[in-house]
Amino acid sequence: MIRNTTVVIIAAVMCCISTTVWGEIYFENESDPCGCFVDDLDIYDGDYYWYVDADETSVVDIFGGTVDEFAPFGFSTANISGGQTKVLDALQTSRVNITGGEVLDLSASGQSMVSIIGGEVDWLYVSDGSEATVVNGQVGYLWAEGLSTVDITGYDISYEPYFSYDNTREAWEGLLTGYWQGSESTPFSIITWDEGTYDQIVLHDLGPLPGLPEPATLLLLGCGMLVLRKRG
């Protein structure tokens, strides 16, 4: 009798362990309101997820649809190319790659890494030792603190530290402007949350926007026009 009981207990423990290892991604939506575990997850147009978290080395690809709250952690990866993600909280050593779509509120902490090469991020917050790289797309507000770093690459980058004063927080908001690299050379503007944020930013200014003459060239052209007028 004791032997049979032991077998039952071992079987129950093995079942729990199997379930824990198998489920790297957990989500809740209308089809599975009580939650469901899967190995990988692709989200398409028309899909609506209330909550998604990704652990271990799992990968979540968001091609469209809507996600209310998304929390990648562990060594998981999130690839976002479409749809709308309302709240994204990147934790631990997770990676987030954004090439399209819209993220309303993105925060990165721990040692997480965020890459933005397209799409739209309304609010970007990086803290602890996290890193963010922005080379294209749209970022509305940027707040960085702790040991975090934000790398921004583009042409004709300029920074206005006293762009707007927030009376509620009694702090100055700055403004970063420039042009993204690429064939379209899209202009960008990013509002920095406070004066300390700029200290966390690493700017990679590629120089004047290609196709636009430099000031010295404009001066020479102006002198040439004057000479031609005098000769005329």
Rank of each mutant, 00 (worst) to 15 (best):
P215G: 00
G211F: 11
A216P: 00
Q92R: 09
I17Q: 06
F63E: 10
Y159S: 07
W143D: 15
G35T: 03
C16F: 12
I17Y: 05
H204E: 08
S185H: 15
V227W: 14
I2R: 13
K86V: 09
S189E: 15
T77L: 08
R231T: 06
G118V: 02
E24N: 13
D32Q: 04
N4Q: 13
Y51N: 14
E214T: 15
E24G: 13
E30R: 12
G118I: 01
Y49I: 00
V139H: 05
F188A: 10
K230E: 14
R169S: 07
L218T: 03
Y125C: 14
T133C: 02
S18P: 01
E184D: 11
E131Y: 04
V7E: 05
T168P: 01
C15V: 07
S58W: 09
G232V: 03
V8N: 07
R95S: 15
S183K: 08
E160Q: 10
C36R: 09
G119R: 03
P72D: 04
T149V: 11
D45F: 05
S164K: 06
L228A: 09
G178V: 11
G46D: 11
L226Q: 08
N79Y: 08
L176W: 02
Y49P: 00
Y141W: 14
E131V: 10
S107Y: 02
S185I: 12
A108N: 10
Y162S: 15
V121P: 00
T66L: 13
C16W: 11
I191M: 15
E131I: 08
P72E: 08
D40F: 10
V121W: 09
Y159K: 07
W193A: 04
E160C: 04
V21Y: 10
L106M: 07
Y44F: 09
L176G: 01
L212R: 12
G222W: 08
E195K: 12
I201C: 03
L218R: 15
Y26D: 01
L203I: 15
I201Y: 01
Y162G: 14
D68H: 05
G146W: 04
Q200K: 15
S31Q: 11
T186M: 06
Y155D: 06
C15F: 13
G182P: 00
T177P: 05
L219S: 11
T20A: 15
D45L: 08
P161W: 03
I25A: 01
G82L: 06
Y165W: 12
T186D: 07
N167H: 07
N4V: 09
K86A: 06
W172R: 02
R229M: 07
L203Y: 06
Y159I: 04
G65S: 10
S115V: 08
A216W: 03
N29Q: 01
L221V: 06
L218G: 05
C223N: 06
A11K: 08
S31F: 08
V67K: 00
E170V: 01
P208L: 15
L104I: 12
L104V: 11
E173V: 07
F73W: 12
V21S: 10
T66V: 08
L175I: 04
V139N: 01
P213E: 09
C223D: 11
L228W: 10
L219G: 03
V8I: 14
V13S: 05
K86E: 07
T197W: 01
A144S: 14
Y141S: 09
L221P: 02
D166N: 14
E24V: 12
P187L: 03
G211M: 03
D32P: 00
G74D: 13
E214C: 04
M1A: 13
Q138R: 12
P187E: 06
V21Q: 11
